[in-house]
């Protein structure tokens, strides 16, 4: 049996077929496909703030991308470009903290990396163009910014990425303070692009979108870590 990997999801009004604006749990299909190609079996996790008991049946967790985190979670007022979805914050923080307690393998993507940072006591930049003066991390609607990242020698992400250090970004917030995490990857402008929790088995956050290219280096590593944890 393949390891079961849970993927967090959105709740949004969705339109498809004959249906219009029906509140739905959804997440871009790329994530499930990336997990499948990495050797895992994906299930999608609708937000649920009651309990993290679903983790008892999971072997690994993907924190997917999505809207901005509520700035009060890291002690800031809400900026003018910040768009939040507080119900998702509550449910995902509950899930993430319980996953970290169990030392479950976690791959955190974009918003997921920001969630990981906040759970580790860190803080975010609420709108990068205000800080960096450029839009390379989110060139335009639906356009990924292709960049070359630098990685800390010997880090997990450096080993996984190897020679191809191209990353595809689509975010307007970023990590200001990594809290108890270690920053192990940077964009050319110095912005953190990867974080790791080196005290745990496999906790990796990336600010870019490896699911879009179905990057087996990262999703395969998550599944491998999830397999090792299988009793």
């Amino acid at each position: 049996m393949r390891p079961i990997i849970g993927i967090t999801s959105y709740v949004l009004p969705a339109t498809w077929g004959v249906w219009a604006d029906l509140p739905s749990a959804l997440v871009p299909h790329d994530y499930a496909e990336a997990v499948r190609l990495g050797g895992g079996r994906a299930v999608l996790l609708p937000p649920d703030d009651l309990d993290a008991d679903v983790l008892e049946r999971l072997d690994g967790l993907v924190l997917a991308g999505g809207p901005d985190l509520e700035p009060s979670l890291y002690g800031q007022e809400t900026g003018r470009y910040t768009v939040t979805h507080p119900e998702r914050d509550t449910a995902e923080l509950l899930l993430l903290r319980a996953a970290l307690d169990r030392d479950m393998p976690v791959l955190a993507v974009c918003r997921g990396m920001q969630l990981l940072t906040v759970a580790a006591g860190g803080a975010l930049h609420q709108h990068l163009p205000d800080v960096l003066g450029h839009e390379k991390h989110r060139p335009g609607p639906g356009v990924y910014g292709s960049q070359s990242a630098g990685f800390a020698p010997g880090s997990r992400i450096a080993t996984l990425m190897g020679d191809d250090t191209t990353i595809n970004c689509f975010h307007h917030q970023g990590v200001a303070d990594p809290g108890s995490l270690t920053v192990t990857g940077w964009a050319e402008d110095g912005l953190p692009e990867a974080v790791e929790d080196t005290r745990r088995r496999f906790v990796l956050g990336v600010q870019w979108h490896p699911e879009v290219s179905r990057d087996r280096r990262l999703f395969g590593a998550l599944v491998a870590a999830a397999t090792e944890g299988d009793p």
Binding site: V11, P23, S24, L26, V27, P28, A42, L44
Partner: peptide, 21 residues
């Protein structure tokens, strides 16, 4: 669930999805 072309917000992409009901 579905894996379906779906529109939400400004997105139009294939998503794994199901009505929240």
């Amino acid at each position: 669930a579905y894996a379906e072309q779906v529109q939400y917000g400004r997105n139009d992409l294939v998503a794994g999805m199901l009505p929240m009901t």
